[in-house]
Simulated scan of single mutants.
Amino acid sequence: MLKPNAVKAKLGAGEEVHGLFCSIPSPALVEMIGCAGYDFAILDSEHTLVDPQQLENLIRAAEAVDLVPFVRVPEADPGAILRALDAGAMGVVVPHVRTRSDVDAAVRAARYAPEGMRSLNGGRVPGFGRIELAEYVRRANEEIMVVAMIEDAEGVEDLPAILDGGGVDLVLEGAADLSQSYGFPWQTRHPWVREALRRVHQECADREVPFCAIPRTPEDHTAWREAGVRAFVLGEERGLAARALRDHLDKHREAADD
């Protein structure tokens, strides 16, 4: 059932929020992320094979531990936006936003009239009747976030137009795909990529649209915070788990060799 969006409220109050990408479709893992103290998880349905029923259960797991569930949907897929929101997502992360028309399509799919034209439905998000449907429509338009991923050179260049039309609640950087767009695949620290991220942040700051960084080192995190950034995605649970497993094994092997 629809709840107040704690991430949106914290950002509005100038507080910091921290999240993770979540690519393993396991409700227990989502619960672990929430119990660890993260504010939000971005459940990935762009790069992973997750079926609609799995996604709904991942969202339920997030709700159980007061973790705000966002869903990264496939590119240019309004049907995926509708299904994610009907399952209970509190926001959609829209990849590869390159032009204002991409935002317009996402807003149309994610918000009810008069802001958009999201298809009307009942079910779990209005609590199977606990929230009166007209009231749910009003509250959903207030609480659900549209998050635009800027991960292409075209998106960087068109960002003023993308933001000036409104409807974007948060901009999330995508340095990895951005590096490829500039011709330097996986060189996320290339000067062109770093300058592009700086430009994206500045355009957001000029328009008072929150910007979400993906710091890859503690130094990155500090620099973004000093620049006024308050939203952070601190990696992906697969990478964190893989590194922890390797480190755990390495420590035991080193101890055995002593």
Rank of each mutant, 00 (worst) to 15 (best):
27 P>L: 12
27 P>V: 13
29 L>I: 09
29 L>F: 12
30 V>M: 10
30 V>R: 03
30 V>Q: 06
30 V>G: 02
31 E>M: 06
31 E>V: 10
31 E>K: 07
31 E>I: 06
31 E>A: 10
31 E>C: 07
32 M>A: 12
32 M>L: 15
33 I>G: 04
34 G>Q: 05
34 G>P: 09
34 G>I: 02
34 G>Y: 02
34 G>C: 05
34 G>V: 08
35 C>S: 15
35 C>G: 12
35 C>D: 13
35 C>E: 15
36 A>P: 01
37 G>D: 00
37 G>A: 04
38 Y>W: 07
38 Y>E: 07
39 D>L: 09
40 F>L: 02
40 F>S: 02
41 A>K: 06
41 A>S: 14
42 I>E: 04
42 I>F: 08
42 I>K: 03
43 L>V: 01
43 L>S: 05
43 L>E: 01
44 D>Q: 09
44 D>Y: 04
45 S>F: 04
45 S>R: 12
45 S>C: 14
45 S>K: 09
46 E>S: 08
46 E>Q: 14
46 E>A: 12
48 T>A: 15
49 L>H: 14
50 V>A: 04
50 V>W: 03
50 V>L: 04
50 V>R: 09
50 V>K: 02
51 D>L: 11
51 D>H: 15
51 D>G: 08
51 D>T: 08
52 P>L: 07
52 P>I: 12
53 Q>I: 14
53 Q>F: 13
53 Q>H: 14
54 Q>F: 09
55 L>D: 01
56 E>S: 14
56 E>P: 01
56 E>R: 14
57 N>F: 12
57 N>P: 04
57 N>T: 08
58 L>I: 01
58 L>E: 00
58 L>K: 02
58 L>G: 04
58 L>N: 04
59 I>N: 11
59 I>W: 12
59 I>Q: 02
60 R>G: 05
60 R>N: 11
60 R>W: 10
60 R>P: 07
60 R>A: 07
61 A>F: 01
61 A>R: 00
61 A>N: 05
61 A>M: 00
61 A>I: 02
61 A>S: 01
62 A>I: 05
63 E>A: 11
63 E>M: 11
63 E>T: 13
63 E>G: 13
64 A>F: 00
65 V>R: 12
65 V>I: 08
66 D>T: 06
66 D>N: 13
67 L>Y: 08
67 L>D: 00
68 V>Q: 00
68 V>S: 01
69 P>F: 08
70 F>Y: 06
70 F>S: 01
71 V>A: 01
72 R>E: 06
72 R>C: 10
72 R>S: 01
73 V>E: 08
73 V>N: 00
73 V>G: 09
73 V>A: 03
73 V>I: 13
74 P>H: 11
74 P>G: 04
74 P>W: 12
